[in-house]
Design a protein around this nucleic acid. Structure first.
Lengths: 166, 166
DNA sequence: CAAGATTGAATAATCAATCTTT
DNA sequence: AAAGATTGATTATTCAATCTTG
């Protein structure tokens, strides 16, 4: 079935490229995880809180977390369970569609987010963005955006629910 | 304690940069995971098999997996447990240090690896490396290498156990 | 019946403690 | 005592099944 050369495949430049991406990402997130943990949060809990904080009215439907966080529907339920237990988030009914629930960030949640953010940004700067000259950082982000848009259709900034993603 | 502006922090360019890196990486790995799963492996099992395949004599000490895979010591034990159960890897005693164990890839393991690799490389090409013009890919990899070397000291290709990492 | 959300059962990862060898 | 590896207990995540609403 396969008449290629395994030894040659093992040496392929694509393995190296993917390896660099993995190691850069995993190394970075490991450092960020330590700082996030100092504030009593897991990375995924922080991400949910961050998305809620960035959302215009501090609320998002449960479903809206799935795609961007690469968490399953039940995974979202469980993260929000923990955040709600800690009073960082509350669940609220959706008036227009009674199947849906909103997760709303609480004042306590905003306070916690505000406590984590400065150190978080500082670390991203120290280990990532400030390591590269502006032009190279800019080029890097353009390349990442290209890959991201290919691999996660419908994640490009807008990602509005109005469709018309032409 | 913190006199910054949370709303402003939430809009910071560093959040965007980290978000792009995350989404590109997670989107890519999600696609790769599907193909790997078609061959009855999890991503981490595939990675262990790949590292063994790339190692000169097809064997690596348990400890050598921890750092590069960002898996804990017990995590390594458990992945190798599963791979050994499936006869893709075997444990072998280390003559020079009886505390250590080698994980050795079996013939079955090499066959399985050979079955996954072509499709794996194809996907990396389609969704990542071939999406960018050579010069931009090259620049991207240089930037990632810079970040990787900062964030994972002692991961730069060689990473030989002989020390002398000056 | 499809979509949103949740639950129980199963799987995988971690931490702390343990065992052996250096 | 420190290093390599493993184990038990806990926690997190997923899958499949379920429930409610559209």
């Amino acid at each position: 079935l396969y008449d290629g050369d395994v030894a040659h495949d093992l040496d392929d430049a694509r393995i190296t490229a993917m390896g660099l991406l993995s190691e850069a990402y995993l190394g970075l997130t490991a450092r960020l995880a330590c700082q996030i943990a100092e504030h009593g949060l897991s990375p995924i809990e922080f991400e949910v809180l961050l998305r809620l904080g960035r959302s215009p009215d501090g609320q998002l439907r449960m479903t809206d977390f799935s795609a961007p966080t690469s968490l399953s529907a039940s995974g979202v339920t469980r993260v929000v369970d923990r955040l709600e237990r800690d009073r960082l988030v509350a669940r609220r009914a959706c008036a227009s569609d009674r199947r849906s629930l909103y997760a709303v960030i609480t004042d306590t949640g905003r306070t916690r987010l505000g406590a984590v953010l400065p150190g978080h940004l500082k670390l991203i700067g120290e280990w990532f963005t400030e390591r590269l000259p502006p032009a190279e950082l800019s080029a890097l982000l353009d390349s990442l955006r290209l890959v991201r848009n290919a691999v996660r259709p419908g994640a490009e900034a807008g990602a509005v629910r109005t469709g018309a993603t032409a």
